[in-house]
Design a protein around this nucleic acid. Structure first.
Lengths: 201, 201
DNA sequence: ATTGGGAGACGATACGTCTCGCATTGGTAG
DNA sequence: CTACCAATGCGAGACGTATCGTCTCCCAAT
């Protein structure tokens, strides 16, 4: 009967309150101690209202992160990828901005929680990839394509691989906390990925 | 009183049974549904015996993984990093072996669970890095050092960065499941990291 | 005699479902 | 146009279940 609740009658006020509460709480108590009950209490909302629209706390956090990413995009963020013609500079600029977000608890906590949860829950991970990660990767890939078309990188470059070469090391250090995330680090990634570490033979 | 239980009287039989049960169960039900109670039941052990020696299920899994890594090291694995003089070949060999492990549920499930748990729990993450990850990274770094000393890569190469350039993309694809892990992928990583993607100017 | 271990009771917490009124909405009848 | 009403989302919280982490009890080993 209630399999498909009527979305047109949904309370947008409650929806926003739930997403905000989830983002607050994940920063305060961490993902493991984040509970649906606490989200409902913080949002001033009945538990059923959450269970009606989301299957899990991870799903709530995913929607919350989507809203957060949307806000960041419309507010101060960049629409599309910068393309000044200088590939290295553009990549460094974007990666520096990414590092700044990773060092900001506001973005770090939910992103880290979602990434970790997605790593152990394939279904959630697929959602995370499709809605949040893939669009980002596509932006990098697109920028690299224009660079390739402009002859700035080798014609046989696997663009997706190149994106992973850039973001992989950053994500690695971010998730595993093997060392601090700095602008110098991301700059070095760009330089080394573009230039390689092998001695010119 | 019971702050420091006497380790010399510890039952090694129970300890092994607990670690084995934890590895089995994390593969069967996943990390989220892994419970201390279930581990105790499977191991034929009282719950207190687990709580006496480990602070959390993550800690149990960390010890279990250490034992697993130790077994793999002594059994068929490589002692130390191969060094045939051909850096690219050695890296490809090791990365292929790593991919094979990542595609093997026996190793994948606990490693993935620990990595994810460590990402959201800084204390656990530090333990994970120190005991499991860092020793691995050091092996790569050591191999790269001999290559650098042999003049095969640039003298000013940041070895730690180079290690992250190699493992970052692999870890990225592994954790986030953006694409299948193949030998072709790791071979390409090695080639691109050593050679760079920039057109030779 | 001391201490770890197996077993399980115990209160606490969060789960996910449910049942209440209440408020809003949209349709229908006068 | 107004008055009423059925439907539905919502806030609140009770409910039984599951797991938590602590505890007590007795046994075995040293």
């Amino acid at each position: 009967m209630a399999k498909t609740p009527d979305a047109s009658r949904r309370s947008d006020r409650s929806r926003r309150a739930i997403l905000d509460a989830a983002l607050e709480l994940v920063g305060e108590v961490g993902y493991n101690k984040l509970t649906i009950e606490a989200i409902a209490a913080r949002a001033g909302v009945g538990k059923q209202t959450i269970y009606r629209w989301w299957p899990s706390k991870a799903a709530v956090l995913l929607d919350a992160s989507l809203a957060l990413a949307g806000d960041a995009g419309t507010e101060g963020g960049w629409e599309g990828f910068p393309d000044t013609g200088d590939l290295a500079a553009d990549l460094k600029y974007v990666l520096r901005a990414t590092v700044d977000e990773m060092n900001d608890g506001k973005y770090d906590a939910p992103a880290r929680a979602l990434t970790a949860a997605g790593a152990t829950d394939p279904a959630l991970g697929a959602q995370f990839n499709e809605k949040l990660l893939e669009p980002q990767l596509a932006l990098y890939e697109e920028r690299l394509r224009t660079a390739r078309d402009a002859g700035q990188i080798a014609e046989d470059t696997d663009l997706r691989l190149a994106v992973e070469l850039l973001l992989g090391p950053l994500t690695h250090r971010w998730l595993l906390r093997t060392a601090p995330l700095t602008h110098a680090f991301t700059d070095a990634i760009v330089d080394r990925v573009l230039g390689g570490i092998a001695r010119v033979s």
